[in-house]
């Protein structure tokens, strides 16, 4: 087990390094310098600007300077917002994005597992068809449509909930979290239904029934451990997906999180900000994928054997 852990971490480090390097050189391919859009400046000012942002050094020098900064968590200055550093923007935006993703994930897991397990237990009844139809809706209605519709209904027509901001009005976290979590609730519902159906047909469940265990303890103690494995391995990709979803949700609900900073940076061609956030996001996603793979190994002895 420890071996696997060490090996996976050892693969993750060079991968991250390659990603960071590729992004760094990719950004350099972009047409135009960072200050082209500003008003025309004298060559002397341009020179000073380039010196201030370390753009006059040879490329390899810039690369090593940047990388050694990244290791200690310094992503350099923002090109667009003078006086602000990329790290500072990441540190202000990150807690908000994490909080949003956390609530969304809680909604997705609770709703998804509950309705998926219920659908599997009550197979081919209304309690199966109805949640699964809703789940299909969740998969086919994208976040960027779900969000505005919720805003229109609950925010504007019914005037029940605030439709923008984060932590400014009471209840303003509800709509964004539901919007972001809904699609994942749908996926998790489908996955847990499939996984549970597979497990419920197996012999050890019949044995447990024969022993006279209560239905509740059969489901919670025996079936769910195996039946929810697909959900656990979905967690890694889901967290990566939540990040992409946060771009949309934070834009719709005007939440000052990392996702919105990233979209704004992409829009404004704030190259250092894009570079920094890309490296940061990649590290997070690689980390969460690692975590979810390890969780699967921990829960599934059979997956451990063929390593």
């Amino acid at each position: 087990m420890l071996n696997v852990l060490i090996r996976r971490v050892l693969i993750a480090i060079p991968v991250l390094l390659v990603v960071a390097s590729l992004t760094f050189f990719f950004i350099r391919l972009a047409p135009g310098g960072p200050f082209d859009a500003d008003k025309v400046v004298s060559p002397q000012v341009m020179k000073n600007l380039n010196a201030a942002y370390n753009l006059d050094a040879p490329l390899y020098r810039q690369y090593f300077d940047y990388m050694s900064g990244v290791i200690v968590g310094d992503f350099g200055p923002s090109f667009r917002y003078p006086g602000r550093s990329v790290s500072e923007m990441i540190y202000t935006g990150l807690p908000i994005t994490f909080e949003l993703a956390f609530y969304a994930l809680m909604i997705a897991v609770a709703l998804g597992i509950f309705s998926g397990v219920l659908a599997a237990l009550k197979r081919n009844t209304f309690l199966d068809y109805f949640p699964m139809a809703i789940a299909m809706l969740g998969i086919c209605v994208p976040t960027f449509l779900m969000g505005p519709i919720l805003v229109l209904v609950f925010g504007i027509n019914l005037e029940l909930l605030p439709v923008s901001g984060w932590d400014t009005l009471s209840g303003d976290k509800l709509l964004p979290s539901i919007t972001l979590g809904f699609a994942y609730a749908a996926y998790i519902a489908r996955l847990s239904r499939g996984g549970m159906l597979e497990v419920l047909g197996q012999d050890f469940i019949r044995t447990a029934r024969a022993k006279g265990l209560s239905e509740l303890s059969i489901v919670t103690r025996h079936a769910m451990q195996g039946g929810l494995l697909p959900v656990v391995s979905f967690m890694g990709p889901a967290i990566a997906g939540l990040l992409g979803g946060s771009f949309v949700v934070e834009t719709i609900f005007q939440i000052p999180g990392l996702g919105r900073f990233y979209v704004e940076a992409a829009f404004n061609r704030d190259y250092t900000m894009i570079l920094g956030t890309t490296i940061f996001f990649s590290a997070m996603i690689i980390f969460f994928n690692l975590l979810s793979d390890l969780a699967v190994l921990l829960l599934n002895p059979r997956a451990r054997e063929n390593l």
Binding site: V15, T23, T278, S282, I285
Partner: peptide, 20 residues
């Protein structure tokens, strides 16, 4: 396997930013 673990949405956005 390695590519699977990468955040592709971000890379597409990166490409769109760099190459127009």
């Amino acid at each position: 396997d390695v590519l699977y673990g990468l955040p592709f949405i971000i890379f597409i956005i990166l490409l769109m930013v760099i190459f127009g």
